[in-house]
C-alpha cells in the first residue's frame, strides 16, 4: 500500500452533444491495484477509459496522474507532446480488437520492438532480445518472431498486443474488453496470462469489461456504470455477492452459472 493514488478522476464528464456519455464520474486508482469497470454496452465505460487515455477530450472534470518523470500532472490540460511522451513511456492501452493495437504489416518482433524504440531504446540487438523474451512470456513460439501478426490466431494476436503494451514496463495499463472477441478456451488462457503478468509486474490496471467473471478473476475493486454514472463501487466480492443498487443486482442476476 502506498499513501497516494496513481490516478485520481474527479467529477469527469464527456458529452456528445446532448448526450452525457460519462456523467460526473469520480474514483481513485492506487498503485498495484486492478480496478474493473463493469456495465452493459452504452453505459459509458469505454468512453471513460478513452477519456483517461486522452483519445477523447473530457467536457468537464479533472484527471490527476502521478507521473514518474513529471510528478503530478492534470491530464485534462496537459500539452500534447507531454501526453504523447507519457503514452509512450508510462502507459499502455489494450484494445478489444488486437488489430487496433498492432501493425499488421510489421512482424511480431517489430510490433514489440517498435514500442521499445518509441520509449527510447536504440540498440537493435537488445531490442530483438527483449522482443524474444516477451514473445515467450506471452506464450508465443519465439520462432514466429519474423512472422506477420495477420498469420496469427485471434488469441495469439491478443497476446502479442499485450506483449507490445507491457514491454516498456508501463505504470498504468488501460484494458478495453481484453478478452471480448475470443473463444472461451482462448479467454481462459489469456486471463491467466494477464493475471500472472499483472501480479509479477505490480501493474496498476483499469479493465473495462461486461463479463463479471473477468472482473472477479482480475480485479480487487469494481465500479458499476449505468448511463454514464457510477451507480455502485466497492470490493469485488462485495459488489458481486451483495450488490446494493438495482442495476448491479440486475447485472449479477443475469449471469448464467456454468
Amino acid at each position: 500500500m502506498t499513501d497516494a493514488p496513481l490516478l485520481s478522476v474527479h467529477d469527469l464528464s464527456v458529452r456528445f452533444g446532448a448526450l452525457a456519455a460519462v456523467d460526473g464520474v469520480s474514483f481513485d486508482l492506487w498503485p498495484g491495484e486492478v480496478l474493473a469497470i463493469v456495465g452493459e454496452s452504452g453505459s459509458g465505460k469505454t468512453t471513460l477509459l478513452r477519456a483517461i487515455h486522452g483519445f477523447l477530450r473530457p467536457t468537464a472534470g479533472s484527471i490527476r496522474y502521478r507521473s514518474d518523470r513529471f510528478g503530478e500532472v492534470e491530464l485534462t490540460v496537459l500539452d500534447e507532446p507531454r501526453r504523447r511522451l507519457l503514452a509512450r513511456t508510462e502507459w499502455g492501452f489494450v484494445h478489444q480488437n488486437p488489430r487496433d493495437g498492432l501493425r499488421l504489416s510489421h512482424s511480431a518482433g517489430a510490433n514489440v520492438g517498435e514500442r521499445l524504440m518509441a520509449a527510447g531504446a536504440r540498440h537493435w540487438g537488445n531490442i530483438r532480445a527483449q522482443a524474444l523474451v516477451w514473445l515467450d512470456r506471452v506464450e508465443i513460439d519465439q520462432a514466429r518472431i519474423d512472422d506477420l501478426p495477420r498469420t496469427f490466431s485471434g488469441g495469439m494476436q491478443q497476446r502479442l498486443q499485450i506483449a507490445r503494451v507491457l514491454v516498456i514496463n508501463p505504470r498504468l495499463v488501460l484494458m478495453d474488453e481484453p478478452t471480448g472477441g475470443l473463444d472461451v478456451s482462448v479467454q481462459a488462457r489469456l486471463l491467466d496470462l494477464i493475471r500472472r503478468l499483472v501480479a509479477e509486474l505490480g501493474l496498476s490496471v483499469i479493465v473495462v469489461t461486461h463479463d463479471l467473471g473477468v472482473a472477479r478473476l482480475l480485479a480487487q475493486r469494481i465500479l458499476v456504470m449505468q448511463r454514464g454514472r457510477v451507480v455502485e463501487a466497492g470490493l469485488t466480492d462485495q459488489v458481486l455477492d451483495d450488490p446494493q443498487h438495482p442495476y448491479s443486482q440486475l447485472l449479477v442476476s443475469s449471469v448464467l452459472a456454468a
Binding site: G234, L235, D237, Q238, D241, D242, Q244
Partner: peptide, 9 residues
C-alpha cells in the same frame, strides 16, 4: 460469517 469478512455490507 460473510459480514465478518466484509463480503456482505
Amino acid at each position: 460469517l460473510r459480514a465478518l469478512y466484509g463480503t456482505y455490507l
